[in-house]
Design a protein around this nucleic acid. Structure first.
Lengths: 206, 206
DNA sequence: TCAAAAATAGACCAGTCGTCTATAGCTTAT
DNA sequence: ATAAGCTATAGACGACTGGTCTATTTTTGA
């Protein structure tokens, strides 16, 4: 019935996550996924319409868990808004340069690969990244409101700029196997959040 | 002979480039590549040791062309250092939101996918990104020297921060099919290059 | 208790992959 | 001119792919 159903479906997703975070989407076959999950191959299509929709479900499941952790970090007691934000970036730094596939960033891993390949998966990535950035923007607003961040910060723009920065640094971290890009992002994040000036409209001069 | 040899090898690389920029590495088979190039399948392994080393060669060839274009932009006559740098970002903005697969960014497309999959390809990406960032740092130095950029800029750090920023924005552009992340990067790039303060050591406070 | 529905099982298909061996074609030296 | 040797071409090959299909088993609810 539905409980069992959801359990096994989720079990497939959970088992697949670190494998796909390691090898990517196209490079992994259903056999490998289902052997690891110890679920017979024939069952797969009972739970998922196709590999593509399985990928969409994997991303939805990933972002659901990610956003829950983000929510916990950004609503922690005993810290001001700036500190809560920095704890998120600090965690990002720690997880993305380690060896644990389980905690790697799915946006970095699959963003480039599947956005041109599958519209359902692209849209799942779109929904997920929008939620993350939007929650970060709220976090910045909270920091401005409690006085721990400069009040001339434009929350939505700043959230996007910071997320971009960390995304790019994480790509380079994968390529370099070295956390220097992430450290540079950490410095720059502190700089932006401390010394911010309003993001300006383009001057058109250049 | 060697001329013919090099021609066909390069022809395979040139034909493969837009296909791989569109679909990624693992999702594209040799058949598709070789049919498009109108080169028989069996010949492939005469020119390349394996698909993996073909991928390495593809990346080397990509970066060689990329760095040549970068060099041209950053040594253009009649502009100061800041203007030359901005012309590079402007070109990035234009190429990465268009539909032309030929001009898309290989680091964004393959960085996440192949860094865990193939060491030769990862190292090719490492060499290429290092060269790009290093040339950008030189460009920043030139801007500082001619007075068009603030002299408190730390060239190497700034180059890395900017490249990270644009890399991440390009990932989001692929996911969103929308150039807002790149526009935000453009604004932020201008802000950094105009209003720069020195990148500070971490305060340890947060 | 038993019929209906849900879930599992894995054989099977057409097609894919990268590899490999055999052959054809060209260059060069004698 | 021709033999030898190397380059390039050709396609067969086995292992595996994602996806489908029909049985079979298990669970559900009347």
């Amino acid at each position: 019935m539905s409980i069992q159903n959801t359990d096994i479906r989720q079990h497939i997703l959970d088992t697949a996550k670190p494998i796909i975070l390691g090898k990517g989407f196209s490079a992994v076959g259903l056999n490998e996924l289902l052997n690891s999950a110890e679920v017979p191959k024939g069952s797969f299509y009972h739970y998922f319409k196709s590999k593509e929709y399985f990928g969409e479900a994997l991303l939805d499941s990933y972002f659901e868990a990610y956003l829950m952790r983000l929510e916990i970090l950004l609503s922690a007691e005993g810290m001001n808004g700036a500190e809560r934000l920095m704890s998120y970036w600090q965690r990002w730094l720690e997880t993305q340069c380690g060896d644990d596939a389980e905690t790697k960033c799915m946006v970095v891993k699959l963003g480039g690969e599947v956005s041109d390949l599958s519209e359902p998966m692209r849209l799942a990535l779109q929904r997920g990244t929008n939620h993350i950035i939007s929650r970060l923007a709220d976090g910045i607003e909270e920091g401005i409101a409690d006085g721990s961040l400069p009040n001339d910060l434009v929350a939505a723009d700043t959230a996007l700029v910071l997320y971009n920065q960390w995304l790019g640094a994480t790509v380079l971290t994968k390529i370099w196997r070295d956390q220097s890009a992430l450290e540079s992002s950490m410095c720059n994040t502190e700089r932006i959040l401390k010394h911010a000036r309003p993001l300006q409209a383009r001057s058109g001069l250049w």
